[in-house]
Design a protein around this nucleic acid. Structure first.
Length: 787
DNA sequence: GGCCGGGGCATTTTT
DNA sequence: TGCCCCGGCC
């Protein structure tokens, strides 16, 4: 084994060598967190831990894969094969399959992805004759998901006053019934959704101490990556597994906790030490990625958060340039500005396309940016579009696999029963579904013997159902003996998928063929790799288990991987990545931070962390842009620069390169300038401005801030959100004592007092049906009624 | 079963 | 504005 210790700095080495129990490694951005985790595992192996006694949990398949590779590089390929390294979901999927006898689920249970479970929820809402405009499936889905992440079973839900009260209040009192029905249906189908994997693991460990003991015994060391992103279910699994030996090593950065909307709870990290009094805290504070200016700017931003583990992240790279702040008149012009800047930097600094990333808060922002890049012939790729495994053609094929392995899997049955078209339409499906619900059996049971369940179908339909049943049964029989690659091939041909696919010779059709071919290649590769390792008889089940939890983009990499292109993605998807030059576009109030976060300081802090993530992606240059008018949801709205910009210490910012300023003659008055009717498009189309041209970089004479006051108080949400007729110019007179206001949660009230200034401005409001409340105007969601 | 048009809706998305 | 979903129609 290599001399790994010499490749670590002092604090990294300390964390790797420490052998005294629970460890919390707080790893600042770019501080070599993966390196520490990798070498920690190498170190354990070196010191006598057998590979199979080490459990290393990650959040993404990508992270697990990369870490395996890096460990293989310092140890051996052979060793990594026996490490228990993977995502929470895939590790516990394997364990739940193995322990199926204790869970009540069949060992061959399959997985519903988010789309499957949403479909089922939709079906249930319909069956319960509830209005899907009131009971919005996505909303119900997230309620159920949150419940599961917090380990609230449907029984517990029924007993939980707070949840029931909330549902009543929100006008969705039957949510608990939907949850219960959903759970029953999943159980009957022998499927788990993503959250259920973690919930069931916890139930297993709670109810079967013997099983828990077995895994406690096996996993002598448990390591977790990105701990700030764990939810309660994951946190408790880790706690339970380490209960005895206390060999737990978690790594993360609380400043990068940005997934609370998916159940992640930053408190798991912040309060980790309460859980383990003997815990040793390590801080990795040296940033190896970015220039000093970028690190310092990011520090000054994040220091505004209250909830955090204080750390002193520093860089020993060159000082570097300040963060450039650019304003533009419109989102359209912002695109122009960004693309000009890219060309300029390429020309004068020798960068290539792939040295740039453009990050934004919402996916919808990409369009106007793409347009601008295209016009300038700049090559780019947009991340975050549909992943390989979410494509319809892939899901269709996988649905066949799933039904062969678990015919109870209803969402998959529904998907394939009439694909390719075999004359089993929706009316037949309704009858089958009704019969299944009536008898409380699975759809497949009804399909297998329609007459038993008195499904009234005509002879032709009955024959077609029979044929479908025989087709699946034939696959099932073959699956007992044939390897995955052969059975897959057989399914493709005999089901008629191939025929259907090759009929369509449109551009999209060809692409679908290619995708399916790629899936088949993956199966072949899966089988042959294992053969080389001496493992025979790789079944379709093995393959499906492997890919059911694969949701990342990775499968369609090779093609564009090395292509020289600018990267466009949301800040969320940029986490963990780095680029020489990073643009952060749309840095405006109500967009970043999102308007949805404005009524809670916790949410604002998370948005601030998100901004922190964005800045710390940059190695050399970071450029922040905002527009004064933005087209959104069919409307052009005026926008103000994000108050987050103000959270960064001035000395790390550079406002001087502001071409828009030059263009506007160096002055800009929000009161007069903002409310013109010639919005983005008309104006931008009116002509080409030389200031945009990268070849003649012109600088305005002034190096001061733009005339827009960045520290604008944010009273504009005092007005109705869509109301742009009113002056949004953010003075304290947006609200006055005596005003009638409406608050989103508390209802109507009257302002009785105002106090404080800036972001501390508060209003005391007497609400009609509750008491007086003092609200921070910065966060309060208030509408002022007409006087 | 597929196509069209109206209505409602519109953060972020590691598994 | 644009996308998705649903219902109505052929």
């Amino acid at each position: 084994m290599k001399d790994y210790l010499s490749q670590l700095n002092d604090s990294q080495r300390e964390a790797v060598l420490y052998d005294g129990g629970p460890s919390l490694v707080v790893a600042g951005a770019g501080s070599g967190k993966t390196r520490v985790l990798t070498y920690k595992i190498a170190h354990l192996l070196q010191n006598g831990y057998e590979p199979h006694t080490i459990l290393a949990l990650t959040f993404t398949n990508k992270a697990a894969r990369e870490m395996k590779q890096r460990i293989a590089a310092v140890t051996s390929e052979y060793v990594t094969r026996y490490l228990w390294m993977g995502t929470f979901h895939s590790i516990f999927y394997h364990i739940l399959r193995r322990e199926a006898a204790h869970t009540g689920f069949p060992p061959d249970f399959t997985i519903y992805d988010a789309a499957d479970s949403k479909n089922l929820i939709k079906t249930i809402i319909k069956e319960l004759q509830l209005d899907d405009k009131t009971y919005r499936p996505g909303m119900i889905q997230s309620r159920i998901s949150n419940a599961k992440n917090a380990l609230v079973t449907c029984d517990a839900y029924d007993r939980n006053r707070a949840l029931l009260d909330y549902d009543n209040y929100a006008g969705i009192p039957r949510t608990n019934v939907i949850y219960r029905t959903y759970q029953n249906r999943c159980f009957r189908a022998g499927v788990m959704d993503f959250d259920e994997l973690l919930l069931q693991t916890n139930i297993l460990f709670r109810d079967r101490p013997d099983v828990l003991a077995k895994y406690q015994e096996q996993f002598r060391y448990v390591l977790v990556d990105e701990y700030q992103d764990t939810n309660f279910a994951q946190h408790l699994i880790v706690t339970r597994l380490c209960d005895r030996h206390q060999h737990v090593f978690v790594v993360g950065d609380d400043a990068q906790s940005i997934y609370s909307f998916r159940g992640a709870n930053i408190d798991n990290m912040l309060r980790f030490r309460d859980n383990y009094p003997a815990c040793k805290l390590f801080k990795l504070e040296r940033n190896y990625r970015s220039t000093q200016n970028i690190v310092d700017a990011a520090n000054s931003l994040i220091s505004k958060n209250v909830e955090q583990i204080r750390k002193n992240v520093y860089s020993e790279k060159e000082k570097g340039s300040r963060i450039t702040v650019l304003s533009s008149y419109s989102d359209y012009e912002e695109g122009y500005l960004v693309s000009s800047k890219i060309l300029e930097m390429m020309r004068y600094k020798g960068y290539s396309y792939s040295d740039f990333a453009i990050l934004y808060r919402t996916n919808s922002q990409s369009r106007v940016l793409e347009d601008a890049l295209r016009k300038r012939m700049i090559k780019y790729k947009v991340y975050g579009t549909q992943s390989f495994y979410q494509r319809k053609e892939i899901k269709d094929v996988l649905a066949y696999f799933r039904v062969v392995i678990n015919p109870g899997d209803e969402e998959s049955v529904k998907r394939i029963i009439n694909y390719p078209a075999r004359g089993i339409g929706s009316s037949t499906m309704d009858k089958l579904q009704n019969a299944a619900t009536q008898a409380n059996v699975s759809l497949w049971t009804v399909i297998s013997s329609p007459q038993t369940f008195e499904v009234a179908v005509n002879r032709g339909t009955a024959a077609r159902l029979q044929e479908f049943r025989l087709l699946i049964e034939d696959f099932q029989n073959k699956n007992k003996t044939l390897p995955a690659s052969e059975i897959a091939d057989c399914i493709m041909k005999r089901s008629g998928i191939f025929a259907a696919l090759f009929q369509d010779i449109s551009v999209e059709g060809i692409s679908r063929q290619e995708n399916v071919q790629e899936l088949l290649n993956a199966i072949n590769e899966f089988v042959s790799i294992r053969r080389e390792e001496g493992i025979e008889n790789i079944s379709l089940t093995d393959f499906l288990v492997e890919v059911s939890l694969m949701t990342d983009q990775d499968s369609d990499k090779d093609k564009d991987e090395n292509a020289d292109k600018v990267t466009l993605m949301t800040v969320h998807s940029a986490k963990g990545l780095e680029f020489k030059n990073v643009f952060i576009a749309g840095m405006e109030n109500d967009l970043f931070p999102s308007q949805h976060s404005m009524n809670s300081s916790r949410a604002i802090e998370e948005e601030r962390r998100l901004f922190y993530v964005a800045i710390t992606r940059a190695k050399e240059n970071c450029i922040i842009t905002y527009a004064k008018n933005r087209y959104r949801n069919g409307q052009t709205n005026t926008a103000t620069p994000s108050f987050f910009i103000n959270d960064i210490d001035d000395k790390y910012l550079d406002f001087s390169d502001n071409m828009e300023l030059l263009f506007r003659g160096g002055s800009y008055s929000p009161e007069e300038g903002d409310r013109q009717d010639n919005t983005s498009d008309t104006r931008a189309k009116s002509g080409y401005n030389p200031a945009w041209d990268a070849e003649t970089p012109q600088r305005p004479a002034t190096g001061r801030r733009p005339a827009v006051p960045l520290n604008t108080p944010h009273y504009k949400r005092m007005e109705t959100v869509k109301d742009t007729a009113n002056d949004r110019s953010n003075t304290f007179d947006g609200i006055a004592v005596g005003d009638k206001v409406v608050h989103e949660r508390f209802g109507e009230g009257e302002v009785v007092a105002l106090e404080g200034t800036g972001s501390n401005a508060k209003a005391t409001i007497r609400f009609r049906n509750s008491d007086e409340k003092k609200l921070l105007l910065k966060f309060a969601k208030l509408n002022v009624l007409h006087k």
